[in-house]
Structure formats: structure tokens, C-alpha cells
Design a protein around this nucleic acid. Structure first.
Lengths: 234, 234
DNA sequence: TGTATTTTATTTGTCGACAAGAATTTTACG
DNA sequence: CGTAAAATTCTTGTCGACAAATAAAATACA
């Protein structure tokens, strides 16, 4: 570890919690920190070269978002993925796809459309590169940008949380299903959604969002089913 | 203030944050701490007879729920009610009423029904007593119990947050609209919802929940409109 | 007297340390 | 050799203190 041993705190005041929060959050969603793994405060404090106090505040924030679970007086662990309630997740995810896209059709501004198009371009590049990781996060960012155009912070927050949880699930079960050279179905679906939002066709947005969500849900379910078959050798 | 001056910390370890969190949360939703009022860490530390550290962790939690806003390196204040986006609030609230009641019809167990009936009884008692405060919180608890029966933690969390925000808004604008001796419309509406949930009539639940939500939204809008007319003397 | 600048004061963000509680290991005893 | 009790280690929850950043007050100056 080549860090600066004698350096005084080379970090801006107040940025400590955010740093720890963002890094931990990313590592949890990446599964770099797999579900159930213990989160040691002192180890993190050493790693980020800061005291335990900002680490704890970052953990409190992560607990509020359901990404870690704190056992009182015992260790805090990375939250498990709630498989028993997976259909609740699918249900909420589908609904949020629909309502955010509908609202985007109603309330988007020209700036929103530019933002959405930019995200879609980044996503398309990730698909072209065949980079699964970036595909997942860019897909998330694309739909978040649509939700932002819908201007409902309550939906936006829940939707973002659901998309993040989906990121964990996808990363856990991902198998390369699509040939990278063929046009990715998400690309064309995204383009259809963009067009429907642009012309403010609420009904069409609802249908397209539902189809998109259903496809993603089906994809995840297929991956899980395939995985389960391997797991259970009765 | 009759507190124990020389007493050593007469409080269980680990209960400090929860105590501060719950009290502050209640006072914010009560408008005992009105929106925009500053939250002084040292004053709270003295008041709760604890160090600033647990106070800060409670504030981080509250910030995660959007109940306080932290200006970096500056004071943290009780979050304002977002009037410009009030229709976003109404939209989300109505949707959550609908989906949670629908899911309750699908998935409720006998225990859930008992719980729901108990909450309704408590609510009815608050109505009979004409206690507006308890009416608001008991109404919240009633709908939360329905959402719990729906078994979707994502909806439950958002719904609870929306109902809490509604508690603040109602407390801000409440005028006694109903004669306490007459049967309160919410009572009969609740009873209709309970019956529809019990017989698992999803469609009826959806309609009743929507009507109920619409009525609450209209009530709030009326109160705000009445208030605005007084405020603006052009 | 009004404005700009320095000084003071207040409040936050962070730190190191200590004590309580739980998990683990060691010891005692059958 | 196995089980129960005691001691130890380890991690967390809390505390008091210090320094940075901001706000407020005081001072200088036109």
C-alpha cells in the first residue's frame, strides 16, 4: 500500500463522509462487497485514512437506504438480497417504470430531452463495447434521467433505489444472453420510449414502459431459474 | 427541569440514537419544530443529556428521510414543505393508496385483518373523542397496517413517508371541518375498504382507495386554498 | 455616516480515547 | 474427554476536545 504516511489530512473538510459513502455504496452495488459480508469500522477507518466517526455516519446513511444492516452492539453487514420478496421488487419496479415514463411524457422540457438522449448515447456506446458492467449502470442512468423529467421526487427516489437493487441482482446472475454484434433489444426499446416521451403520448409511454419492465423482469427470472436448476441437484 | 443532576448515564447503551431520532422525528411531524427552524446540535445534546455524536447520527438518519436539510458547514434546519411540487405529492400519495390496498386484498392473512380492525377501532375512538391530532396519526397507522398486509416493503416505505409528510401538511392547515357528533366520512370509508379487502375484491379496493385518496387530497387543497385567500390581500 | 476589512465568536466536522456488550478463548471441574 | 464458568479479546456506542469554516461583531477608513 503506497499511501502517504506522514501526510497531514489532505482532504477537504466535510468531504469525508461523502467519500466513504459513495465508495462503499458503489462497492456494495458492484458486489465487490457481497451481501452478508461484515463491514468493519476500524478497517474502513484505516483504509480511508480517517476516524471512525465519518465512517459511522456513512454507514447510517447506507442503512437508511437499506444497503447495510446493523445488528445492535454487533457487526454491521452488507444487506442481503431479499429473494423471498422478489416479486414485490418486480411489482414495484414495473410500476415505477410506468409512472415515471408517463410523467416524463407530460412534464419534460427540451433540456430533459437532451439529457435523456445523452444518457442513451452513453448506454449505446456501452452496448457497442460489450461492457456488461457499464451497460447495467448506464441503463440505470438512462431511466433515472427519464424519471427526473417526470419531476416527481418521491417516484424518483424509489425508482433509483429499485434500479440500484436491480444492479445488484443483475450482477449476481448475469450471463451473456445477447450477441454483442446484434442490435441490442434494449437500444430499440429505449429509442421507442424516447420517441413516445418526445411526442407526449402518455398511453404509449405506459405500454412501452410496461413491456420494457416485463422484459427485464423476465430476463432476471430466467437467469435465476437457470441458476437455481444448477443449485438444486435432487 | 427536574432531572437527575449527578446521575451517571441512566440509559441503556445503544438506545441514545433511537431516542433522539424518535423524539426529533415526532416533533418535526408535529410541527413542534416548524419547517425551517434551525436544529442546534449542542442544544439537543444538552437536552437529551448525551454527547453530540448520537445526535448527529440521528440527524443523518432524519436527513435520509428528507425531514431535515443539512447545509454543509452551516446549520441543519427542519425541511420545508415542498409546496411547488405539491401535486407530485398528491399523485404519489394517491397511487400508493391504491396499490397498497390492492395488494392487501391479494395477500392479507387473518392476522393482518385483526391488526387492521384494531387500528380502525383506535381511529374510531379518536374520532369519537374529537381529538384531531390522534385522528391524523391513527388514520396514518390504519393505512400503514393495510400496506403491511400487502407485503411490499418498497411501497410500504414510500407510503409511510408520504403519510408522514401529509401529517405535517394537515397539521399546518387543519381547520375543524366536520362536526364531531356526526359520523365521520373517513370511518365509513375505512369500513368499506376493510370489507373489500376482507373479500379480496381487488377492483373494488382500487376504486375505494382512489376515492378515499381523492377526498383527502381535495380536503387538503381546500384548506390550502382557504388559507391562501387569507394570505394574499391584493 | 456608510462601507470595507479585520477580529471575535459560534458551530460544525473530525479525531483519539474509554467503557459496555458480545464473541471467543481459556481454564476449571465433572 | 466433555461441559460449564471465567477471563480475554474484539467491536461497538459514546464522550470530550480540537481545528476548520462560517457568521457576527468590531474596527478602520473614506
Amino acid at each position: 500500500m503506497v499511501d502517504t504516511p506522514s501526510a497531514p489530512p489532505e482532504r477537504k473538510r466535510g468531504s469525508g463522509v461523502r467519500l466513504a459513502y459513495e465508495v462503499l455504496r458503489d462497492e456494495i452495488l458492484d458486489l465487490t462487497l457481497p451481501p452478508g459480508s461484515p463491514v468493519d469500522e476500524v478497517a474502513l477507518a484505516e483504509r480511508f485514512a480517517m476516524s471512525r466517526t465519518p465512517i459511522r455516519e456513512a454507514l447510517v446513511r447506507l442503512e437508511g437506504e437499506g444497503l447495510v444492516t446493523t445488528l445492535p452492539n454487533r457487526s454491521t453487514v452488507v444487506a442481503n438480497i431479499d429473494f423471498p420478496n422478489l416479486n414485490a421488487f418486480f411489482d414495484a419496479l414495473t410500476l415505477m417504470y410506468r409512472v415515471t415514463t408517463r410523467l416524463a411524457a407530460e412534464f419534460h422540457t427540451p433540456d430533459d430531452m437532451q439529457n435523456i438522449l445523452a444518457r442513451q448515447a452513453v448506454f449505446a456506446r456501452a452496448v457497442a463495447d460489450g461492457d456488461e458492467q457499464r451497460m447495467i449502470t448506464c441503463n440505470r442512468d438512462f431511466h433515472v434521467s427519464i424519471a427526473e423529467a417526470g419531476r416527481n421526487p418521491y417516484y424518483l427516489q424509489l425508482f433509483a433505489r429499485l434500479l440500484d437493487e436491480g444492479r445488484r441482482i443483475l450482477r449476481l446472475y448475469y450471463y451473456p444472453t445477447f450477441q454483442p454484434s446484434l442490435p441490442h433489444p434494449y437500444i430499440t426499446e429505449h429509442e421507442a420510449i424516447i420517441a413516445a416521451v418526445a411526442v407526449r403520448d402518455v398511453g404509449l409511454c405506459d405500454r412501452l414502459a410496461k413491456d420494457h419492465a416485463d422484459q427485464i423482469v423476465r430476463q432476471i427470472q430466467d437467469m435465476i431459474a437457470r441458476d437455481r436448476r444448477q443449485d438444486i441437484p435432487l
